[in-house]
Structure formats: structure tokens, C-alpha cells
């Protein structure tokens, strides 16, 4: 197969305070076996050689698990392939002369640091608010002392698979972090170890999510469609139940 030339339109922005704009570039001699980010690597090599500023973007593991990468490709979060981070998107999904528009994940709670690099520390603060089981190191009982049904642990694992990339936020018209927050609440609420703190956890995490400036969920489902780990929107329903349970309990007290 012949290599391709592509027309890129890329978001460039110096820092959070500056105004950004789209710039066009030609990506030359792109192999079908390249990943999307390897294509950008090559464009950057060409830009450096020409004395121009390379396009900054985040990436680390490049195998779809660290959650560092993420851009919007032609309006689609992480690009056109289902259940795939942009580092695992391969150029065989594109054709010669294609026009490709590349933008950062956009949300008020994800300010741009530079070009396609964004600040997702709001996610850390949501976890910080309660996304854990309060056990110190040492003194844990034998791992087999509490049996957990396979179906339950499988469901918990489905939720725990979240990589924290922020695709759900970028895809949501409300820029809601509900799927991210729900995935953690759901993972821990399903397991016997996590049930003890479920109410406090749901309340704190949901309230932190609001504080960070994320929008609310209106059941559109874009998040599930964009999620590279295919985390189900049903976890949001569970989060709502968990939250409701916690609030009602508080009122009854």
C-alpha cells in the first residue's frame, strides 16, 4: 500500500491565557501502519526541521491504558474507531488526501495548557474527595476471607477499567464528568469492601464534581459511545441511586 498525504487542521494555543486558532499543515508520506500519534510525531519532526514550533500533545504508554493521550479528531473524541484511544488509532483508518481536524478535549474544567495539552487535575480532585476505601497499609484480612461472586467482581472490573482520559467529558454536550465519577463510585459500591463507605463516598464525589464546574448528566449517552474502555452509562444510573440513597438517609437522620 502506498503512503498517504493528509491535510491537517490543528488547534494551536500558547497557554491557558492566550487565544488559540486553527492552523493547517500537510502530513506527508504517512504509512498505513503508523498510529495517529506516530503520524503527529512525524509532522513534528518535519516542523522542527523547518524551524517551526512542533505541536504539543500528551501521550505516554501508547498502548491505550495510561489515559494520558486524547484529542478530538474530526469532531470525534479519540477519533473514529470505537473503544480506542487515539494512541491505538491506526492510519489505515484514513485515506490519502483526507482532511483531518485535530482539537483538544474541550471543557471548562479542562483548561488548555498548550496546543492539545490540557489540565485534567479536576479528575484527581474528584478521586481525592472519596474515590477510595479507607484502609491503611497492614492489617488487611486474608484476601480470601470475604468471597465475592464472580458476576459482581466482573461488573466492578468493568467500571474499574476507566483510564481517566476525560473522553466522556469531551464528548458530553454538558461537559459532565458523570461517567468518570460513576465508574469509581460503582466499582467500589459493588464490592463488599467498598460498601461500608458508599454513602459518604457518593455524596462527596458528586459534590466535588459539581464544584469543579462539570455539567450535569442529561442521559444523552455520548460518553458511553466515546469511552475507549466502553464503560456503560448504567453506572451513572447506579451513581444516581447511590447519591439518592445517601441524601435520603441524611434527611431521615
Amino acid at each position: 500500500m502506498k503512503n498517504m498525504n493528509l491535510n491537517l487542521l490543528v488547534w494551536r494555543q500558547k497557554d491557558a491565557g492566550s487565544k488559540g486558532k486553527m492552523e493547517s499543515y500537510i502530513a506527508e508520506n504517512i504509512s498505513l501502519d503508523m498510529s495517529f500519534l506516530e503520524m503527529l510525531d512525524q509532522v513534528n519532526e518535519d516542523l522542527i526541521k523547518k524551524g517551526l514550533d512542533p505541536i504539543e500533545f500528551d501521550s505516554d504508554c501508547r498502548e491505550g491504558i495510561c489515559g494520558a493521550c486524547g484529542v478530538v479528531v474530526n469532531g470525534q473524541v479519540h477519533g473514529p474507531q470505537r473503544a480506542t484511544t487515539v494512541c491505538q488509532l491506526y492510519m489505515r483508518n484514513f485515506k490519502d488526501k483526507d482532511k483531518i481536524v485535530i482539537e483538544p478535549f474541550r471543557a471548562r474544567a479542562f483548561p488548555v495548557i498548550r496546543d492539545l495539552v490540557i489540565d485534567r487535575s479536576s479528575f484527581d480532585r474528584i478521586i481525592m474527595a472519596g474515590g477510595y476505601i479507607s484502609v491503611n497499609t497492614g492489617g488487611a484480612p486474608d484476601a480470601n476471607s470475604i468471597p465475592v461472586a464472580k458476576e459482581i467482581v466482573d461488573k466492578a472490573m468493568d467500571a474499574a477499567a476507566c483510564i481517566g482520559c476525560g473522553a466522556c467529558v469531551a464528548a458530553c454536550p454538558n461537559a459532565s464528568a458523570s461517567l468518570f465519577t460513576a465508574a469509581k463510585i460503582s466499582h467500589l459500591a459493588l464490592l463488599p469492601q467498598g460498601k461500608i463507605e458508599r454513602k459518604k463516598r457518593a455524596e462527596k464525589m458528586v459534590s466535588q464534581m459539581d464544584k469543579e464546574g462539570f455539567g450535569d448528566c442529561s442521559n444523552i449517552g455520548e460518553c458511553e459511545a466515546a469511552c475507549p474502555k466502553e464503560i456503560s452509562i448504567s453506572h451513572i444510573a447506579r451513581m444516581k441511586r447511590e447519591y439518592f440513597r445517601a441524601v435520603v438517609d441524611e434527611i431521615e437522620k
Binding site: Y132, T137, P147, K150, A156, M157
Partner: peptide, 17 residues
């Protein structure tokens, strides 16, 4: 033991172990 207490969802048999 520590990881299970933290909620790490290790694979389990049908009996729950």
C-alpha cells in the same frame, strides 16, 4: 490481602474465591 482490601477487583472463581 492489602490490594483486595483496597477494592482491587482480582479475577475470581464462581465460588467467590
Amino acid at each position: 490481602d492489602q490490594c483486595v482490601a483496597q477494592g482491587v477487583p482480582f479475577a475470581r472463581e464462581y465460588g467467590g474465591l
